[in-house]
């Protein structure tokens, strides 16, 4: 784990609750398995994902849409494998 602010980590966990069930399921699995291994850079990228609209976020995770932002491509890759 990183030296990321522990309160920020808790906020991230809450913000992983979404409006779409499919995202809830993927992110729940990821939070239980994978999240704690993220580097600081990956955590910043994940935070950025959480600011996406739910439909865009899901399309990225499902591979329905290409991820243009290089900052996000790597973390979306991790989520796709989760």
């Amino acid at each position: 784990m990183t030296d990321f602010d522990p309160i920020e980590l808790k906020r991230i966990r809450w913000r992983s609750r979404r409006g779409l069930l499919e995202l809830d399921l993927v992110l729940e699995r990821f939070l239980a398995n994978g999240f704690e291994q993220l580097t600081t850079a990956e955590l910043f990228a994940y935070q950025k994902c959480l600011d996406l609209g739910d439909n865009d976020f899901l399309d990225y995770v499902n591979g329905k849409a290409e991820v243009d932002d290089p900052e996000l491509a790597h973390i979306i890759g991790i989520l796709r494998a989760a």
Partner: peptide, 12 residues
């Protein structure tokens, strides 16, 4: 709201 409004379940 528990979550940001545009992430309410209406989005589904």
């Amino acid at each position: 709201s528990k979550v940001f409004p545009t992430r309410s379940h209406t989005v589904a």
